[in-house]
Design a binder for these strands. Structure first.
Lengths: 108, 108
DNA sequence: GGAGTATATCGTTTATCGACGATATACGGA
DNA sequence: TCCGTATATCGTCGATAAACGATATACTCC
């Protein structure tokens, strides 16, 4: 360890660990092409889609279900039960919140 | 497969596979708390930081180096060699581009 | 040329992810 | 009540990620 050349002092106070964790967790939910695609499809629908998402994407039903669970856990989508189907839709406020968190974290 | 209830037809033309892939790849680079933290630290610096990042974070030098490589590969940071150090800084245009890609993909 | 310094790479181990088929669940309707 | 349908969960396997210590690399300065 030597003295810094181009480093200003960093104040730990500006590090909000919870926010960082949330940003990372949500980014992880976006970190797969299939999930980006699913989100995009849902965002393009006025209402919601059922398991037709499975047909829109070349993956097994169980795989799609898992991707949807991850997106749901991240808060990016909502699931409305319409037996026997489930109607998924994007949660725009949470998507916007991610966007905001991203911008504010990195001072864009 | 049955007829849809709440699904409108989806046009594959609006699916830009390259963009989806890029969004996923960049999201993956953000999908770790240590990398979010590193980016945040760098974004808070006027210029750049050297390997002091290693000291700012409780991880081994080799681990931090790997995280930095991932961020660099994603285009989120720039590395300027100042032997024997390397000065890292955020690439704001790429961060902003991610933001834009995110917004436009999901129609926010 | 040799020593010192900062960063990158390698090799290993453990943990997590992604995909699938098979099966369970939870309901609506005949 | 039993059947069909849509979704969720389970178990497994191969692939990838994350962490570390040890070592290599690539310079600067004596």
């Amino acid at each position: 360890m030597t003295e810094n050349i181009c480093v200003t002092e960093f104040t730990p106070a500006s590090l909000n660990e919870e926010e960082e964790e949330k940003l990372a967790v949500q980014a992880k939910a976006l970190a797969h092409p299939a999930r980006v695609r699913l989100l995009k499809i849902m965002a393009a629908q006025p209402g919601c889609v059922g398991g037709d998402l499975v047909n829109s994407i070349g993956l097994a039903q169980s795989t799609v279900s898992e991707h949807l669970r991850i997106l749901k856990d991240a808060g990016f989508i909502l699931a409305e039960v319409q037996r026997p189907r489930i109607c998924y839709s994007v949660n725009r406020s949470e998507l916007k919140n991610f966007n905001f968190l991203f911008e504010s974290s990195f001072k864009l």
